[in-house]
Nucleic acid binder design. Structure first.
Lengths: 132, 132
DNA sequence: GGATGTACTAACTTTTAGAAAGTACCAACT
DNA sequence: AGTTGGTACTTTCTAAAAGTTAGTACATCC
């Protein structure tokens, strides 16, 4: 029991995503969540207002975009600049930490986009093997 | 309408994750899904059997691990080697495409794990500003 | 003066994830 | 000889997450 506690604490310190309780697991989920990835990737192209971002990230609902941006702002990856005007004017951008993360995400997205034809071929092969 | 159709087709061809209908969006979700990331990252360390992988990726249920591995196998990122013995013996490993993806994921995970203290600080600042 | 646009929030519904038990089979232990 | 344990899943049921819709509080355009 003491060993388990010690292990848990140690893993928390070294930040191991494979440990369920580690804070890095939560951060990973915010960043790689369905809309988190796309929001960060979109913001890599510059400053966006709420609805502009919503048009860019096709298919996201207002609720989920607001929620995602709040989470990423809380984690320090996104900067929210709200001007107290009417109608409201809010600008979203990446913080330096957010830029670091977005760069890695874009590297991933690029290899995935390039690999789409091979993935489609692999899927066809798999489905045929299962169906037949 | 013709324009929209042309746009959709064009985006499908160039593989744009921001387009909701694009196949790359689905692949991205498989790879960056809650358990997809961790499965790929774990398999980067070598060959694993089902239950060994389950112990490595702490917190995953049997159902979700099986589902995740099936999706990744279908996409051609994971190789499944089942020996028809009793009791069953199944080995999971990364394909070359899977290794490419896993490398980018690990790069991301590394910056996130390193950034955990700053994220925690940002969260504390955010919560204090909201609470006060 | 009704429609539209801004950035959300709240209530409600649908989809998905997770927890627990079941399956099929054999080996070892009792 | 029967119970336990291990393998790799699948199925069922429930709890949590995501998505849809409507509403807010203005201001400007037509």
């Amino acid at each position: 029991m003491d060993e388990q506690r010690a292990d848990a604490e140690h893993e928390a310190l070294v930040a191991d995503v494979f440990s369920a309780a580690c804070a890095s697991r939560a951060v990973l989920e915010h960043v790689t969540g369905r809309w988190g990835v796309l929001a960060l990737a979109a913001l890599n192209d510059g400053v966006f207002r709420f609805n502009a971002l919503r048009r860019r990230v096709q298919g996201v609902s207002e609720k989920m975009l607001a929620q995602t941006l709040q989470t990423l702002e809380r984690d320090g990856f996104v900067h929210r600049d709200a001007r107290p005007t009417i109608p409201p004017h809010v600008e979203y951008s990446l913080t330096p930490a957010g830029q670091e993360v977005a760069r890695r995400l874009l590297a991933l997205i690029e290899v995935l986009e390039a690999g789409v034809p091979e993935v489609m071929a692999a899927q066809a092969r798999y489905d045929e093997a299962k169906g037949a």
